[in-house]
């Protein structure tokens, strides 16, 4: 009897000890976990911070042998100078070009995407599956492969180096089709129940009316996603505009930014102005992300599942 009691007591102490050790271990692992997450978060944030800090410093502060994490006095005038009329970064010109190219290429893409997705999701025709497979297969082709001949094509069309309209066309027209967005919208269209289609047919609605009155409004969230992602694409596109818009005044924002604030003869860079420019280019994207997070994530996370 007494023996048994002792054993029980022993186990009780053990269980308590184990619990205590487990608790300490849990706290410790939580600390390690948070430390890791925080360190990584700092690494992610530092470039953003340094960009803003540098944009608010004077050139003397930037070049000083002793660096500080904060500007002594925030030099807001750097922004006025970087965006001003005497700056080599013609922000307002680039902004106008980027918006024109972005909006028109997005509108074109939306039209082709809506039509093609409708045909694939709703209509029946010979060779539908084959055609769709071909469409999907073209996504494998790296863009660089197409750029060579597309450059020749737009050059032959007289869109390169002629005038600003030509440059706009060269930056807009080749990007009017996006197979990925067709795929995305087709999936969305397919989820709309057939009953709606038959009901519309009974009411004597044509396919055209059904598309615009029923399908497009239902798919509006995904269309907004496409619109935002495509606009962001123009904002960030560098390679193709760099090839076809070979004039100061035709450039898009990314091209303008890369070449600006550098004294061509001495190679000296005005870092504070340059960083003010990068802030101006980065902030709209972050704002777009904050306000349209839902829409952006929808497009992005779908992209992850397409494989």
């Amino acid at each position: 009897m007494t023996d048994l009691k002792l054993v029980l007591n022993d186990e009780k102490i053990n269980a308590k000890k184990v619990q205590k050790i487990e608790k300490v271990f849990k706290i410790l692992s939580n600390i390690v976990l948070y430390a890791f997450i925080i360190v990584m978060a700092i690494i992610v944030i530092i470039p953003f911070y340094w960009m803003i800090a540098t944009s608010l410093k004077t050139m003397e502060e930037i070049r000083a042998s002793q660096q500080y994490f904060f500007p002594k006095v925030a030099q807001w005038k750097n922004y006025a100078e970087a965006l001003g009329p005497n700056s080599s970064f013609k922000f307002w010109v680039y902004l106008r070009n980027t918006l024109i190219v972005g909006i028109f290429s997005t509108l074109g893409t939306l039209i082709t995407t809506i039509f093609a997705a409708f045909a694939f999701a709703r209509l029946n025709f010979k060779g539908k599956d084959t055609l769709f497979t071909i469409f999907l297969a073209t996504m494998m082709i790296p863009g660089e492969m197409l750029v060579i001949t597309n450059y020749i094509t737009v050059a032959r069309l007289g869109w390169v180096g002629s005038d600003i309209t030509g440059a706009y066309l060269a930056m807009i027209v080749p990007f009017w089709v996006s197979v990925f967005y067709i795929y995305l919208l087709r999936q969305n269209f397919k989820q709309i129940p057939n009953e709606l289609y038959y009901a519309a047919k009974v009411d004597g609605k044509s396919d055209w009316q059904y598309l615009w009155k029923v399908m497009v409004p239902i798919a509006m969230p995904i269309l907004i996603s496409i619109f935002i992602l495509k606009l962001m694409g123009s904002w960030n596109s560098y390679v193709w505009p760099n090839l076809v818009a070979n004039n100061e005044n035709w450039r898009l924002i990314s091209n303008g930014l890369r070449g600006a604030f550098q004294d061509t003869s001495s190679g000296m860079i005005q870092y504070n102005l340059q960083m003010a420019g990068t802030v101006v280019v980065t902030v709209p994207l972050l704002l777009l992300f904050i306000f349209f997070r839902k829409y952006i994530m929808r497009g992005v996370s779908r992209a992850g599942l397409k494989g």
Partner: peptide, 21 residues
Amino acid sequence: TIFFMPYVTNAIAIGMVFAVM
């Protein structure tokens, strides 16, 4: 949100920040 930030930035702009850093 913090970890997603680099995704929505301009590759050219942040690359230039790295060059400065």
